[in-house]
Simulated assay, not measured.
Amino acid sequence: MTGATSATARAAAERHTGRTTASARPLGGTAFLVDLDGGERVVTKRGAGPGAARAEAAGLRWLAEPGDVPVPEVFGDDEDWLVMRHVPGGPASPAAAERFGRGLAALHLRGAPAFGAPPPGGPTDAWMGLAPMRNEHRADWPTFYARDRVEPYVRMAADQGVFTADQVAVFDRLCARLPELAGPAEPPARLHGDTWSGNVHWADDGLVWLIDPAAHGGHRESDLAMLRVFGLPHLDRVLGAYAEAAADAGAPLADGWPDRVGLHQLHILLVHAALFGGGYGQQSLAAARDALRLG
């Protein structure tokens, strides 16, 4: 895989836009802000691993199809690089939060072919940030969540000494009981998949844009739970508008959904535990024990 440098970022931008570039500067990680000749700006981003750029591009296109929530336009992608529109940031506002909540409800209700389904054209082996993530069709949400969103990351963390055998057994019990803990069955939703606050982008056009997806077919409570992980401006406005829009569409959130927030946050906590260890392992364990008390 090519290195992530200003030179390779500019080359990727030129390859996928057909334009010459004037400059590039790092945005953090492997993303760069590239100035095209003529003044337009794009973001180039090198994938975290094989297939990552293509997975993210497919996710952006899938989320963009209905136009419910704005996402950056994809100019092109290849095995290493994704090139997309740059969206300047702006202030967070209650009006934008409410519009985002309504749009997210509509996006979820667009549905997906199955739990675990990748976006059209997206690979089965995808990524969530720096962590590999498998998107494979499963018959129901408990099976999908256990096999593809809990167990792989528990194993990764345990292999690094984050969890003891007794602690792994807590997650095993949780997975075995997921059918009774998951709440009423729902059809698969079209998920962004990584809606922590860093991927909820308040733009200068007065809208909320979604960036950096780990898109797949999943449970809509997962996206809502992830909004809470690191805090989000005007979160109450987002959730209130979401609940109202979902109810108006004839698909109200199931009773008790706030009690299941920790269960749905378990995936992102385990990803962090596997990548970074430290306190994330204890947070994951606490979330699993709390979820076991729901039944």
Rank of each mutant, 00 (worst) to 15 (best):
A273M: 11
E151Y: 03
V154Y: 01
D255W: 01
P187A: 11
P213F: 01
H219G: 00
D223F: 01
Q160N: 14
L207V: 12
V229P: 02
A273N: 02
R173W: 10
H216S: 14
L253G: 13
A182Y: 00
H267C: 10
H272T: 13
A158D: 05
A182I: 12
L253F: 14
H264I: 03
V271G: 00
Q167T: 09
E221M: 05
H264C: 03
L275Q: 15
R173I: 09
R190Q: 12
H272I: 08
H264V: 00
W209H: 11
V150A: 00
D255I: 02
P252F: 13
A249M: 15
L224K: 06
E221H: 07
V229W: 14
L270V: 09
F276Y: 12
Q160A: 11
A165L: 10
L210Q: 00
D248Q: 15
D159P: 07
G256L: 15
L227N: 00
A274E: 01
G161V: 06
W257R: 01
G218D: 08
P233S: 14
A249P: 09
L174Q: 02
R220H: 03
V168Q: 07
R228A: 14
F163M: 05
D159A: 15
A169Q: 11
R237N: 13
P184V: 04
W209G: 03
A189K: 03
A225S: 14
A169V: 09
P187Y: 04
G183I: 04
H264L: 00
H272V: 10
I211A: 04
A225K: 10
E180V: 11
G256H: 15
M156Y: 12
R260G: 01
V170A: 03
L253T: 14
H219L: 00
A247T: 15
T164C: 08
R260T: 02
G218I: 09
L181A: 10
S222R: 15
I268T: 07
P252N: 12
D255Y: 05
G256K: 14
V168I: 12
I268N: 01
P213V: 10
G277Q: 02
D212A: 02
F230A: 10
A158C: 07
D166V: 10
A251F: 05
W209L: 11
A225C: 04
G161A: 07
G250P: 02
A214Y: 11
